[in-house]
Amino acid sequence: MKISVIITLKKDVLDPQGKVIHQALDGMGFNDVNEVRQGKYFEIDTKETDPQKAKNKVEEMCKKLLANLVIENYKIIDAQ
């Protein structure tokens, strides 16, 4: 089954890349953007067929490797 995870920077962590993207959007005429925050997206294809078990495993992966919990949050957004 495929589990989708997004990793985002925590609120009080500076995101200079997001800022630059925001500025670029501004320059392109998208003037109504308040803020841009850049994150990461992972698709993990696992042999596990039980959705809850698969989610638990991916959560463990997030805590141990995919995210650094000092600066990042993770969210499992899909399992199918």
Partner: peptide, 16 residues
């Protein structure tokens, strides 16, 4: 920092 032996993290330089 990634092993946790010292606290904190190292982010991208402020001015990229």
């Amino acid at each position: 920092v990634e092993t946790g032996l010292v606290p904190g993290v190292l982010l991208r330089n402020k001015y990229l």
